[in-house]
C-alpha cells in the first residue's frame, strides 16, 4: 500500500470576482488582507465566477501570482463560462465543485423541471374534491362534478365535462386561461376576476373548445 485518503474539511475562502480590473483588484486585495492578515495567509482560495460578466476575460496567471504573493493558495475556480473555465485551466486552475455552486445549479434545473410539469388528472373529480396545481397548469381528462374545485397558478384544461368551479391564474397570473368543452361550470375565474353560471353569455352549442381569458381585466368567454 502506497497511500490512503483521509477525509478532511479544511476551510476554503471563496473569492467572488465581480469585474476584472487588475489595477483596482491589486489595491483592493492588498487593503483587505492588510486589515486581517491572519485570516488570509496560508488559506486556500476558490475563485467564484458567477457574478462576472460572461464577456469578461480574466488573466488567471496574473491573478494566481497575486494570490501566491499574498501567501494564499488558489486551488481552482467555480462557475463562469466555458471560455473563462478554459482560461483558468490553462493557468493551472481547474473547475471545482467546492461550495454550493454545482448544487444550486442542480436545484435550479430541478425547480425549472417542477415548474414546467403539468398536473394531469385522469379520474373523475367528484363533488367536494379540491385540486390545486401549484406553479403549473392543470389538465383534467375526465368529468368535474358540480361542487368540485379546480385551482391552478397556470392554465386549466378540462377535456371531460366541467360542471364545478375552475379558478386559473390564482396568485395574480392574468395571462392564464381556462379551456373547456361546454359551459356548465358553476363559476370560472382568472386571477380573481370571476363569472358565475348566471352571468355566462348565451352561447350556441358548437363543436370545439371554449376558452376563457382576461382582456382589459374583463373575463371573456369565446369559442376557440
Amino acid at each position: 500500500m502506497c497511500f490512503q485518503f483521509k477525509a478532511s474539511f479544511s476551510p476554503c475562502i471563496i473569492f467572488e470576482l465581480f469585474r476584472y480590473d487588475i489595477g483596482e483588484l491589486k489595491l483592493q486585495l492588498a487593503e483587505t488582507i492588510h486589515k486581517t492578515p491572519n485570516l488570509f495567509t496560508g488559506s486556500m482560495v476558490v475563485i467564484d465566477m458567477e457574478k462576472l460578466k460572461a464577456s469578461e476575460r480574466v488573466n488567471f496567471e496574473v491573478l494566481k501570482q497575486l494570490f501566491l504573493a499574498h501567501g494564499m493558495t488558489p486551488v481552482g475556480i467555480r462557475g463562469g463560462t466555458a471560455e473563462q473555465q478554459e482560461d483558468a485551466m490553462s493557468a493551472g486552475l481547474p473547475l471545482t465543485n467546492i461550495g454550493k455552486s454545482m448544487v444550486s445549479e442542480n436545484a435550479k434545473t430541478k425547480v425549472a423541471q417542477q415548474v414546467s410539469v403539468t398536473k394531469l388528472i385522469t379520474h373523475p373529480i367528484r363533488s367536494g374534491m379540491q385540486i390545486y396545481a401549484k406553479e403549473t397548469d392543470l389538465i383534467v381528462a375526465a368529468q368535474v362534478s358540480p361542487g368540485a374545485e379546480l385551482m391552478a397558478h397556470g392554465n386549466i384544461h378540462v377535456y371531460g365535462c366541467l360542471r364545478g368551479r375552475a379558478l386559473a391564474g390564482i396568485h395574480g397570473n392574468k395571462e392564464a386561461r381556462i379551456f373547456c368543452r361546454s359551459l356548465e361550470a358553476e363559476l370560472v375565474a382568472v386571477a380573481g376576476y370571476y363569472l358565475t353560471r348566471d352571468e355566462f353569455p348565451a352561447m350556441r352549442e358548437q363543436n370545439g373548445m371554449i376558452q376563457i381569458f382576461l382582456k382589459n381585466d374583463e373575463l371573456q368567454i369565446e369559442m376557440l
Binding site: H123, P124, R126, S127, G128, M129
Partner: peptide
Amino acid sequence: VRDSDRILGLLAS
C-alpha cells in the same frame, strides 16, 4: 345525485 357524487369522492380517497 349530488350527495352520492360526494360519497364517491370519499370512497376514492
